[in-house]
Amino acid sequence: MKAIVSVIGKDKKGIIAKVSNILYENDINIEDISQTIMQDYFTMIMMVSISANSDVTKLSDILTKTGEELGVTIRVQHEDIFNAMHKL
């Protein structure tokens, strides 16, 4: 499945390195990555592909915990929710 990994918060060193490493360890390929400032928030968005047998809930828990350590919010969400809301 395609998913969106988003990191929102205060920019600091090592965010991309840490998140990329977790994704690599979980056999997840990053297809696209961008970062920008949105409404005063540092926002990094990754489009990733996750294999069908991956445990998304477990991955989500790991990323949430890493986010807490880095002082940012990290989410992984199936792309369907964004498509449903914004695409006809």
């Binding site: 988003s6 409404q39 968005i45 919010t73 964004f82 809301m85 695409k87």
Partner: peptide, 16 residues
Amino acid sequence: MINNKEIFETIQMINQ
């Protein structure tokens, strides 16, 4: 392709 603004909007809707 969804753009970053749309992704951010959805996240803010849920989060805030």
